[in-house]
Design a protein around this nucleic acid. Structure first.
Lengths: 215, 215
DNA sequence: CTAAAACACGAGCGACCGCTCGCACTCGAA
DNA sequence: TTCGAGTGCGAGCGGTCGCTCGTGTTTTAG
């Protein structure tokens, strides 16, 4: 319950001040990751942005990757708090285009407010291939997509469902990244294209209407 | 004609040995970029892979970025030599799915043979945002896609055409990258998904049949 | 043949990175 | 009030990286 008191690392007792510092450091990390991407973001720069020394940063995070992981977890949690209803079963029974709106719009809006989200999930400069914030966000979202597709097209073989979810997720991620590179009307136009791409891809695969449960 | 004898840099007269070294270094760079991506690929590693010293590398390339740019130009030239007919007008008049096969299959095959191509065009770790091999490849391909779409859907407003081309290109790039992360049958299945995604996206936009020239 | 230019080497420079360490402070439970 | 644990600092360690430079060798022009 109190973080993970596992064998290797003592989790340490935090004072209120420390908790504040951690949030401060995560905010700074979000800003710097967003500006430079994970690899080019230096831990010293994150500490400077947070107005603390490098040593202080390492009082709260064992290494650079842990910062990204914590940030990823915080972002995911914030998104689930704000838009946790996006993937509910109710939406899955909507017509395809409405379902996409219901699912995508909250995520898009969240990305507008938290650009670090995309910076972390989009950048392929993951450190050790495994772990890293990208994996946290990716795995969670991917799983939601898989569940939605399975609910909607239960007759689809599982491995095919995984492929469709993966492909749809990649299209969404890159399409959103594309949109975020533009402003105002142009950005809106790219979001329209993104939805058109997803609709065009998914319609033949999982149908435009909700699946009527047979027998 | 003789490279660029512009104000700032003297282009230097190359011997046969030097030309060979450059090709050798580009081969090595392709291998290392492919293994590590642009940023994590060190110039010393490229020199080592080519069996020369770091100093020798810098006799032929002024800096790391120039290596990537030269490699990008060489890859693009090789692809145009091998599959230059992919974007010809003849293919543009085919039905959509056939057209996609005609255009995508050669590019996919080329990527199987030259994995550095994807490594360069996919990695977002471009150095100074501008230039770099990625821009060379991206701009060239993007332009081909734009021309194909304009030919096929001439009534489409130009800026909309650019957006469609950009979106389609991104879907292709990431879908191919996804496929390349798998092997054998799984990879083939992802290529099927990639084509399904492009077909689904482009069919409503530019039509399944070639555009009949009106008036 | 000779001199200049191209080629080749590899130690190492300077900058930066992730991260450490010794020490000073502040807080809060006893 | 006390004192240990939590917090904070920042110089700097060990390492990697892109790139340089002095020197020596090979090729080529005249």
């Amino acid at each position: 319950m109190e973080e993970d008191i596992s064998a290797t690392s003592a989790p340490r007792r935090r004072q209120a001040r420390g908790k504040r510092r951690m949030a401060q450091l995560l905010d700074a990390a979000a800003s710097v990751f967003c500006k430079c991407g994970y690899t080019k973001a230096s831990t010293n720069a994150i500490a400077r942005e947070a107005g603390v020394s490098p040593g202080t940063l390492y009082q709260f995070f064992p290494n650079k990757e842990a910062i990204a992981v914590h940030l990823g977890e915080r972002l995911m949690q914030q998104m689930l708090e704000a838009h946790g209803q996006a993937f509910t079963d109710a939406n899955v029974s909507l017509p395809l285009d409405k379902m996409l709106d219901a699912i995508l719009d909250p995520i898009i809006e969240f990305n507008l407010r938290n650009p670090a989200f995309l910076a972390l999930i989009h950048g392929p400069d993951t450190p050790g291939e495994i772990a890293s914030s990208k994996q946290v966000l990716h795995a969670t979202l991917q799983r939601q997509v898989e569940e939605a597709i399975t609910l909607r097209a239960p007759e689809l073989p599982h491995d095919q469902c995984v492929r469709v979810a993966t492909t749809a997720f990649v299209i969404f991620r890159e399409g959103l990244s594309l949109a975020m590179q533009h402003q105002g009307a142009e950005r809106a136009a790219y979001i329209v294209e993104l939805k058109a791409a997803l609709t065009g891809y998914l319609a033949p695969t999982i149908g435009t209407e909700a699946h009527a449960v047979r027998h």
